[in-house]
Write a protein that binds this DNA or RNA. Structure first.
Length: 529
DNA sequence: AAGCCTTTGAAGTTT
DNA sequence: AAACTTCAAAGGCTT
């Protein structure tokens, strides 16, 4: 992520751990020190998380003292210290960081009323007890745009797909240990589960011992490993070569690769992935065109997303992956280090297993896979980007009468939602929500453009001019209209954003995934005329 | 049908 | 070395 790098490089001395960089993005001049401390803490913590797994990997000594959570060498990977009823697996059902207003969401009750949302308790904005149970960055003072999806509002009545209340675990017959495993099964069941034969689209229960989940992902029948006396128990210890069962024969792998590749081909649904090819000629062509594709091992966040997505979908009534991913990104940041460590460790094992299975594989192999790789923004010509940006911006003012969104605006929904958020935050009468007559406002357009310019990393774009102290304030005024009181301090003094006891800190911590429309330094507001 | 969106992280490439 | 890019998952949405 270019913006991540740029910001981290500018502020953290290059220790790019990705997720913390933008914590600084919204910092106030006044509390820079605190923020710096917080951010450094984050960097430190996160890097220690990584070091922790890496050092273990290198030393062969399991978790040399940094964390005790892996002291249990149970065959069930991920058997960390059990969480209470609101622990990791289910903890998101309860807002871990209650809002000062006592509600389950960050908006004042009065504001929810203005937004036409149910005021008070039970149902938080759109994501009961879930992501939206976490405070937004204090500087915003408004709920995340995705909360304001009109679709979401329409979906408020949706029955949770996971109706069991927190604390009532759906697997009462299982031992606590197995319950944890079962919990990890829970999410994947949200997805269509292919047959074992089609295991390439397996539910991939990432909390399961890697022996089944990862193997199925890589197309290796778990049966090959299931009875390994070492693999499961070794998971917490890292997978030394001795612990890894002999990989399948080359023919096995080839077969699996092919299946895997087929099942993962863009456009081929999981349901059809294992059907015999209707046309052998077509099949052959495809096979020729697209070499067996060994996918990258999932990183920690991907594993987390895979595990949590369905739950978020169920809770928030959102279905769009982009919005879900934003939520998951925030949740990821709100995880404790132990919780994140679980996923870092899983990811490490994923990589290790992947290495064992595909010794010669390189991520490079997948570059440009299937030639599908779209013409990314940054690959586009200046004419496509910078040169036309202003035109695009102008075009954004045009209305698409058939659509409820501005047609030229890529993040249409967000535009509308952002406007709604602004209206709600300012206490003004919201503009018509998501009606065919609702354009993106100028402010919205500016925010979108700045966001685009930033994420595009397009230095030639006029929007991406040199950084200016005025940009932040200008944007601040956009996010927080003049009629509104000044936003809360972005970072409370002396708080560690990672500190779960610090309710405000979480939102700041997660500001990276917080609204794309949010301002970033280094981008001036320019008027689009 | 192909690509976008959106997230973080790993690993690759480029500067 | 730092910056930048690609790709992992996901599914609704747009073109």
């Amino acid at each position: 992520m270019p913006h991540a790098h740029s910001s981290s490089a500018a502020s953290s001395g290059g220790d790019d751990l990705g997720s913390t960089d933008e914590v600084k993005v919204f910092k106030d001049e006044g509390d820079g020190e605190d923020e710096k401390r917080s951010s450094e803490n984050l960097l430190e913590e996160k890097s220690s998380l990584i070091d922790w797994t890496e050092s273990e990997e290198k030393s062969g000594e399991p978790y040399p003292g940094k964390l005790s959570v892996k002291s249990d060498l149970s065959p069930v990977f991920g058997k960390f210290e059990p969480h209470p009823a609101t622990g990791f697996n289910m903890g998101y059902l309860m807002a871990p960081y209650p809002y000062p207003n006592g509600g389950a969401h960050p908006l004042p009750v009065s504001m929810t009323g203005k937004m036409g949302l149910p005021a008070g308790g039970g149902l938080s904005l759109f994501c009961p007890g879930g992501e939206l149970g976490q405070p937004p960055p204090a500087h915003m003072g408004i709920p995340p745009p995705y909360q304001l999806d009109s679709k979401l509002a329409a979906g408020l009545a949706r029955t949770p797909m996971y109706p069991f209340p927190g604390g009532t675990y759906p697997y009462p017959m299982l031992s606590p240990e197995m319950s944890q495993v079962a919990a990890s099964w829970h999410t994947p069941t949200m997805y269509p589960i292919s047959s074992a034969a089609s295991g390439f689209r397996s539910p991939y229960p990432t909390s399961l011992p890697i022996s089944s989940s990862s193997l199925s992902r890589y197309g290796i029948p778990s049966e090959l490993y299931r009875f390994s006396p070492t693999l499961g128990g070794g998971l917490g210890l890292g997978l030394g070569p001795a612990l890894v069962p002999p990989p399948p024969s080359k023919s096995d792998l080839d077969s699996h690769h092919s299946r895997y590749a087929r099942s993962l081909e863009k456009g081929s649904s999981s349901s059809s992935s294992d059907k015999p090819s209707d046309s052998s000629a077509n099949s052959n062509n495809k096979e020729q065109n697209k070499k067996p594709h060994i996918k990258k091992p999932l990183n920690a966040f991907m594993l987390y997303m895979k595990e949590m997505r369905a739950k978020v979908v169920a809770e928030c009534t959102l279905k769009e992956s982009a919005a879900i991913n934003q939520i998951l990104g925030r949740r990821w940041h709100s995880l404790s280090r132990e919780e994140q460590a679980k996923y870092y460790e899983k990811a490490r094992q994923e990589r290790q297993l992947h290495m064992q299975l595909y010794p010669g594989w390189s991520a490079r192999d997948n570059y440009g896979y299937g030639s599908k790789k779209k013409k990314r923004k940054k690959d586009r010509s200046p004419a496509e980007l910078g040169g036309n940006n202003l035109k695009k911006c102008r075009a954004r003012y045009g209305l698409d009468q058939q659509s409820q969104w501005c047609k030229p605006c890529r993040r249409k929904k967000k535009c509308v939602r952002y406007m709604e958020a602004l209206a709600a935050a300012s206490g003004t009468v919201p503009m018509p929500m998501a009606t065919p007559q609702s354009p993106c406002s100028e402010e919205d357009v500016k925010l979108e453009e700045m966001s685009d310019a930033s994420s595009d990393g397009d230095a030639d774009t006029p929007l991406n001019s040199a950084s200016s102290p005025g940009a932040l304030s200008a944007l601040s005024s956009l996010a927080s209209p003049a009629s509104e009181p000044a936003p809360a301090p972005r970072h409370p003094v002396g708080t560690n954003p990672r500190d779960a006891n610090n309710p405000l800190s979480v939102g700041q911590l997660t500001s990276q995934s917080w609204p794309r429309a949010a301002p970033r330094p280094g981008h001036e507001v320019i008027s689009v005329s």
